[in-house]
Design a protein around this nucleic acid. Structure first.
Lengths: 191, 191
DNA sequence: CGAAGAAATTGATGTATGGTAAAAAATTTA
DNA sequence: TAAATTTTTTACCATACATCAATTTCTTCG
């Protein structure tokens, strides 16, 4: 919890009232590996801030293949923004990839926070900008890099996710099959 | 210009002072087909709001291939957000794909606007959320759809871009070659 | 209008990655 | 620790899409 406040105050200054309000709309949760925080078909009314560990969001297509939209590590937010923005039910699953610590917010609570404490908008805008830039970079990578090069970028960006996540999550983030990822790794060993 | 104001007031209410301020930091520009508004290697200090026509942003890799990050049509914003956010020089080119009308803002002007008129934050957040959601959807499409299916989505989303844009821009948005796009189109004709 | 240039198509062939299935390795659980 | 389960690897073959090059069609503009 403290970590969230630290993170926020590293970006904006926070009045005691705002701080109290944040406490009132959020709660700390420890989630076990494999725990599902948002699941497909549900209404989405939660947003999570990760203080420890790693979560992911992914969708499952008709053939049952998973496609990972996001890995959320320390200091990142995760939810199903598509569903929230369009006021739809979730097509995504948000799942904890290892034992993690998150701060849970209700979407309503966050909205109220922004209304009651407009100074929070600056913080929120910063988050959105950062997120947007990371998505744009990912799209450019997807367009111009080979699977192997994308894997390089991934490893740089998330150096330790491999250590606790099955291959297929990573593969599904890169847009390839687990077998292909396995082959890419094999080829590395040769050089 | 009026169209921008209309667009803004459809989302938030705008004080006369705020309105004046917006006028003071922006200017209307007519840009010809092929005009380059931001080019690779430059400092980025402009953001454009499209009121008419269509612009695109793309990067060019070492081999000279173009990769389209965004098409911006009416009521969308376009710039090189990656460069702005990271305070780097642009890796993107922003170009007009047909004769268009845009409102040009300086990044500094927009920042000042947000400071002077915090009510504008809500509007800005809305834009960012919309943009973010569209990027997330695109990533999910890229991960799970075939080239042909992505083309379907593209046509739905931008029904008339084909009528004025060379194929290769579209192909480079979809992440395929112009030849592949041509074949996809050909296959359509057969059914 | 007609020539020059740009864009789109088409064919032949190449390559990266996918699919399937079986075996091996690692991890979890009893 | 052994059995069960999950994950990874490997082999073989399939396919979507890329590449290259030639040709045709469409635009632009003198």
């Amino acid at each position: 919890m403290e970590q969230l406040i630290n993170y926020i105050t590293s970006k904006i200054s926070l009045s005691p009232e705002a701080k109290d309000y944040i406490y009132s709309i959020s709660k700390k949760r420890i989630v076990e590996k494999g725990a599902v925080l948002i699941c497909e078909g549900q209404k989405v009314n939660k947003i999570f801030f990760v203080t420890e560990g790693c979560l992911s969001s992914y969708c499952t297509d008709e053939v049952g293949r998973e496609h990972t939209l996001q890995f959320a590590i320390k200091n990142w937010w995760i939810s199903d923004y598509i569903a929230i923005y369009n006021n739809e039910r979730s097509q995504l699953t948000v799942e904890s990839l290892k034992k993690s610590q998150v701060i849970e917010f209700s979407t309503q609570g966050l909205e109220d926070l922004l209304i009651k404490f407009p100074e929070f908008e600056v913080f929120q805008r910063n988050n959105l900008e950062r997120h947007l830039v990371s998505l744009q970079k990912r799209i450019l990578n997807q367009l111009q890099l080979s699977a192997s090069e994308r894997y390089d970028v991934f490893v740089q960006q998330y150096p330790d996710i491999e250590s606790f996540t099955p291959n297929y999550h990573i593969a599904s983030y890169l847009g390839i099959t687990q077998e292909s990822l396995s082959r890419i790794r094999f080829d590395r060993g040769k050089k």
